[in-house]
Write a protein that binds this DNA or RNA. Structure first.
Length: 576
DNA sequence: GCCGTTTTCGGCCCGACTGTTTTCAGTCG
């Protein structure tokens, strides 16, 4: 049983409880447990076998007992009772954007909808709008949502694939026959979502390597075990493919499998003009196969510089490499600070609070070798604070940060992440914003506006003199929703005119701006900043994924503001 | 349901927004 399957079961129980109007906290508890499992890097069944289920926060005595029953018998009597009497179809359509448990229940019950296809049919027949509480618009939006779901891919997030792959690499390095090891495929190119995990090994004794690989402790099933390659399935149904080659030809292997397909096709066409042919085994010149131990030598033979995997998309990189004019892409070592950090500073916000204190985040920043750090908690919720209370909160945070600044452990910027509200106004007034060292503004609600409205909305934040950074500009969530559409010419113009910075948000599900738009921003001369949106110190390591997006967008240090040393960096903000 | 404790109960989740209402229910973050 995979984590995904367990999560689905728990979400179904939560949905059933919600429909049956059980106390809210019970519903929340099940969803929280599902969240914990969804985000757990370990296999939950494995944890259960090791009697470590209790280490997962959100799983208490009751759920532990139910999961025990689930793993032993494959079912849970209590869950069955809870879901009893409810139409099965509701669990199939629950979770589609804007369809929650109650909507799912109503539709499944009244229209006898059993699955997504049924839902599409009844919506197309116009049966939904005739239900009480539904109308033309909600029916149309359901159709759009189905369309969105059907286009969703079964790919995992880059961060997930990356972490799983790192563990496999650690295991593989234990085998003495492994001389070199790297990831291949879209993972090596650091694409935002990944299908399978591919790994390359340079070795003289592939047999040993493959035998070691198939013994990977988290492997569930060996799919294929050949002489030079093997594939295994991990317990969470993720496939890992291993390919080996001799060290003398390792560069060929390493170059071939990451692609992209278009990049390789272009290379092959170039080779063909010289009468050569390219493959994973090397470059064939007048029927003789030439081997290359490194990628650098492979590319050199083709008359070009080595191309960083992140930009191998056949979008001009080959021509640049031939002219020895590739961009000098930003690296993680260039990053000097992180400005999008949510601390546990005690404010009742309308969004999530962080888990760690200012001090803990400062210490983490030091350990990352940063020169500066910026705090950007969400603002106090508008509904529950009076004007003077909001002002008091801002003052309280400012005072606390001023004290930390005086300790001179690291350079600190005092800021907030303000909401860009539906009408384009901000969740803090200007008279408070102007006293902050910096302001990040982001959209956190009403994500379904038209292109025109969304553009206007963001432009009004760009026009605000106290706003410095626009966070996660497109609002997309990978595998979940596409962002709102924007008129990018206007956004870029606004940023340039008013000196605003676009964020490359490194949160694994966001990665927003995304690579293609980063490239556009670079072309337009718009400055960006890579930041993590961390809500806990551990998440500050995610900066890596943001840097990858920047690299995929051809960004150099000149494009990324937080590569600047403090003395230069602070000039862009209101540091006294 | 979970969790933490001032440790076996009481607090935890609520604000914003939308579409359908005409005062609210449901979704989302």
């Amino acid at each position: 049983m995979t984590n995904k399957e367990i999560v689905k079961i728990l979400r179904n129980v939560a949905a059933a409880y919600e429909v049956k109007e059980e106390p809210f906290f019970k519903v929340a508890a099940y969803n929280k447990a599902a969240d914990a499992i969804e985000q757990s890097p370990s296999d939950v069944k494995e944890l259960w076998e090791e009697k470590k289920l209790g280490t997962l926060s959100g799983i208490g005595a009751s759920l532990e007992k139910y999961l025990d029953e689930l793993f032993k018998t494959g079912r849970v009597k209590h869950f069955k009772e809870v879901m009893g009497g409810l139409p099965k179809g509701m669990f199939e359509i629950n979770g589609i954007p804007n369809i929650g448990p109650k909507t799912a229940y109503k539709i499944a019950l009244k229209l006898e909808v059993k699955n997504l296809d049924d839902l599409k049919k009844v919506a197309e027949k116009g049966l939904i709008k005739s239900l009480e509480g539904f109308g033309e618009k909600s029916e149309r939006e359901i159709l759009e949502a189905i369309d969105q779901v059907q286009r969703r891919t079964g790919r995992m997030l880059l961060a997930q694939a990356y972490e799983i792959a790192q563990k496999v690499l650690v295991w593989m390095r234990k085998d003495k026959s492994v001389e070199r090891i790297d990831t291949l495929g879209s993972l090596r190119r650091m694409v935002s979502t990944i299908g399978d995990i591919d790994i390359a090994v340079a070795t003289q004794s592939p047999k040993n390597v493959i035998s070691h690989f198939t013994k990977y402790p988290k492997g569930r099933k060996i799919i294929e075990e050949g002489e030079k390659s093997a594939s295994i399935l991990l317990e969470n149904d993720i496939q890992v493919d291993l390919k080996t080659d001799e060290p003398k030809s390792y560069g060929d292997l390493l170059q071939h499998f990451p692609g992209s397909k278009d990049h390789n096709i272009h290379l092959r066409e170039l080779a063909l003009k010289k009468g050569w042919s390219l493959s994973e085994y090397g470059i064939k010149i007048s029927k003789k196969l030439n081997y290359f131990p490194t990628e650098e030598e492979f590319y050199k033979k083709l008359g070009m510089d080595w191309i960083p995997p992140e930009i191998r998309e056949n979008s001009g990189e080959i021509e640049k490499a031939q002219k020895h004019d590739l961009p000098k892409l930003v690296t993680i070592e260039n990053i000097c600070g992180d400005l999008h950090l949510h601390s546990s500073f005690n404010v009742r916000t309308s969004h999530d609070l962080g888990k760690n204190s200012f001090l803990e985040m400062i210490q983490k920043a030091k350990s990352l070798g940063y020169e500066y750090i910026g705090f950007s908690n969400h603002t106090p919720a508008l509904g529950t604070h009076t004007k003077s209370e909001v002002e008091a909160v801002v003052k309280r945070q400012t005072k606390e940060i001023e004290q930390l600044k005086s300790s001179r452990v690291i350079n600190i910027l005092n800021g907030f992440e303000v909401d860009i509200l539906t009408d384009g106004s901000l969740s803090l007034p200007n008279n408070l914003l102007k006293n902050l060292d910096f302001v990040i503004a982001g959209v956190h609600s009403s994500l379904r506006q038209t292109k025109e409205k969304a553009t206007e909305r963001i432009l009004s934040a760009i026009n605000n003199p106290w706003v410095n950074i626009i966070s996660h500009p497109t609002g997309r969530l990978l595998n979940e929703r596409e962002g709102y559409e924007l008129d990018w010419d206007k956004i870029f113009d606004g940023c340039k005119k008013f000196g605003k910075i676009l964020e490359i948000n490194a949160w694994p599900q966001r990665l927003d701006l995304f690579d293609v738009m980063v490239r556009e921003a670079v072309k337009n001369g718009v400055k960006m900043i890579v930041s993590t949106d961390s809500h806990a110190v551990g998440q500050m390591d995610n900066i890596n994924y943001g840097v990858s997006v920047a690299r995929r967008g051809w960004a150099e240090c000149k494009d990324i503001l937080n590569t600047l040393p403090w003395v230069e960096f602070k000039k862009f903000f209101r540091v006294k």
